[in-house]
Design a protein around this nucleic acid. Structure first.
Lengths: 207, 207
DNA sequence: CTAGTCTGATAACAGTCGTTGTCAATAATG
DNA sequence: CATTATTGACAACGACTGTTATCAGACTAG
């Protein structure tokens, strides 16, 4: 039995959590700077200034690290978007715009997160599946929880999910084009255009 | 100086072209069955029943092969879509539906092509950039060449490109969800829904 | 038949990969 | 003090990577 002990005033559990955070941050750095293909245990550990041993302390697998990193970003985007939506006045266009602006704010503030959510999660099979799963989950969540949307009529669930996938996928490509410099739009222009297109698609829910 | 000579009744140039085709087909197989991460020169050559030497005869690089494979699929989709659009009666909704149906027909008939265009071209950085480049190119082409669209008014080019990226990206995610079984829609349902959403977005071109 | 081209299998090169193990130095505990 | 947990650096393992070279056998041309 090996007892756990504090080190430099920091208890064991906290040290573990700290290293885990370091690895997740390093994963975002590596994804952003060198891309998904260049990801490796050694590269991430070097970035985090940690030994491979500590990698396997916190993650069973390279895939688990990437999954955790991408999930945290997805959760943050969804959280902010839903919060902004909840705080916005009770008008559909305003709420949609607020949600898009909040979500876009996350990835435009920290481009590493954009890379994680747009590039990494697109290239890796399991990550891509996970992203789509989350999109349909949040679609269900919004459909059920948004009174203004339900007021428009009750769409078949599959139709609503299809629309959710469509507007999320479309937004992803537009945002990536903007952040990579291939499409020059100001933040306001991005949010305005995305809002317009989202509303155009969502208006199809009524008929 | 090494003279070229026929082998088993086939001239040298034709043999080279044949091997090149074999490699491209093998690339589609590998992408579809094992994913982008499992792609390697040896894997593709094994699939094509060729030696690595012949790989470097036709392609300088693994990236060049993937680029060529993905480009050929993209070209085929665009070709069929534009042809169907040109043959359709002069009504916007009908033309858009014909184009979508034709494009979807390509990837639903040969799922390897769907993998190439949706998964491979999303994960690999340069391939992804190339796909987006082509999307904006075709967007320009359609904007300039489609009278019914111009009749709606002249949108700013950047706005039109943004819409093109949006509807293509959205369609990609929906189609991938359908082909992977996560979203159960018949071919007619897919085409109908995509057409509806495309038209909803494109209607924003008028202002 | 002989000379020369073409083919396919295999080996070799130096790297990197994931993963595990070793070991001296450092810090906390008794 | 001595003991023990913790750390970080480093080596080692087999497997795979891209790329090039080697070599015996199949085929063609003169």
């Amino acid at each position: 039995m090996t007892a756990s002990r504090a080190y430099r005033g920091v208890p064991a559990e906290e040290r573990r959590a700290q290293r885990r955070r370091l690895l997740l941050e390093a994963a975002l750095d590596c994804l952003h700077e060198d891309g998904l293909a260049a990801i490796s245990v050694r590269a991430i550990c070097g970035r985090a200034r940690l030994t491979p041993r500590y990698f396997y302390e916190s993650f069973e697998d390279l895939e688990q690290l990437l999954l955790a990193a991408v999930n945290s970003v997805i959760d943050e985007v969804a959280e902010r978007a839903l919060a902004a939506l909840a705080e916005a006045p009770a008008e559909l266009a305003v709420q949609v715009r607020a949600a898009i602006d909040a979500g876009y704010g996350v990835v435009v503030t920290d481009e590493r997160k954009a890379s994680a959510i747009l590039v990494a999660a697109s290239g890796h099979g399991p990550l891509r599946a996970r992203r789509q799963q989350l999109v349909t989950d949040y679609a269900d969540l919004i459909i059920d929880g948004l009174p203004l949307l339900n007021a428009l009529g009750l769409p078949e669930r599959r139709t609503a999910r299809t629309m959710a996938l469509f507007v999320m996928g479309g937004a992803a490509d537009v945002i990536e084009a903007v952040l990579s410099g291939r499409l020059r739009l100001s933040r306001t222009q991005v949010v305005d255009q995305l809002t317009t297109m989202w509303l155009a698609v969502l208006s199809g829910l009524t008929g």
